[in-house]
Simulated scan of single mutants.
Amino acid sequence: MESKQYSTPDASTLGRSQYETGTEQRSRLLLIENDPDDARRAREAFETVATETEIEVATDGAAALEFLRERVEESERIPDLVLLALDLPEVDGFEFLENVRDDADLVQLPVLVLSDSSASSDVHESYERAANAYLSKPSDPDEFETVASAIDRFWLRRVSLPPHGF
């Protein structure tokens, strides 16, 4: 993964989910997924969307929280969006949501649950802990592109996301 300097958006671009790197715009996502095959499929799917997307991957909620807190402490840009699996080691998806929503620096970070569970209790608990959306993880690997495209069209190109102060 290449390293780039990200400029702070000016007043005319506040609320946009993309940050300029030279003349290109790129969105940053944090994928929290412990299944390496699903992480690979998600990364490959986002390579096909219109928005240039940089994806960081954490394999558990504890590593993801550490990643985000380091970004805040070092005044580095945090991701525009988090894609969160629920079934994670150490800190599961529900605990991750709770921690993010209790952190003043991260509370506005959009978190989309991407889970293979269709249990209504998981959907309910995700929204109770302030997930921004609950998406079913595709059972067909080729369907990852459809999900990535929908996320791109709505979350990365249509929604005005809160600017991060870094």
Rank of each mutant, 00 (worst) to 15 (best):
S160T: 12
G61Y: 04
P163S: 14
T8P: 03
D87W: 02
D122I: 03
V72A: 07
D80M: 05
V91W: 01
R101E: 08
E98I: 02
P89A: 10
S121V: 12
A58W: 01
E98C: 04
L156Q: 04
E66F: 10
L109D: 02
P163V: 10
Q108M: 12
L30V: 07
W155S: 07
R157E: 14
H164Y: 11
I151V: 15
L156K: 04
P163G: 06
S139F: 00
Y127G: 06
A11R: 14
L86G: 05
E24V: 11
E98P: 00
D80I: 00
K4P: 01
T53L: 08
E70N: 15
S126F: 03
A148H: 02
S149C: 01
E44N: 13
F96I: 03
K4H: 14
S12A: 15
D102P: 00
D38N: 15
D103F: 11
T146R: 14
F94E: 06
V100P: 05
L135D: 08
E44M: 14
A45V: 06
Y19V: 14
S7E: 15
V82Y: 01
R153V: 07
P89G: 07
V113E: 08
T8A: 13
Q25P: 00
A85G: 14
G15W: 10
S121L: 08
E95I: 01
Q25M: 10
L14T: 12
N34S: 13
E73R: 15
V113R: 03
Y6T: 11
R41N: 14
R158I: 01
L97R: 04
W155M: 09
K4E: 11
R157V: 01
A42R: 00
A131S: 12
I151P: 05
P141G: 08
L114W: 05
S126W: 02
E76M: 11
T23D: 15
I78T: 14
S75F: 10
W155Q: 07
E125S: 09
V91R: 02
P162I: 10
A39E: 07
D122R: 07
I55N: 06
S7W: 03
I78L: 09
V100A: 10
V107W: 07
H164A: 13
H124F: 09
S120W: 03
E66P: 00
I55E: 03
E74M: 12
S117D: 08
L97S: 08
P89T: 08
R71T: 04
L83S: 04
A62W: 07
V113L: 09
E2G: 11
D80G: 15
G165K: 09
Q108L: 13
Y127R: 10
D60F: 04
D142V: 01
E20D: 11
I55V: 15
A11E: 15
Y134R: 08
E70W: 01
Y127F: 15
D152I: 05
M1N: 11
A63P: 00
L31A: 08
N34R: 10
K4R: 14
R101M: 03
A64Q: 07
Q108P: 00
D35R: 11
E143P: 00
A58I: 02
A148S: 06
A62S: 12
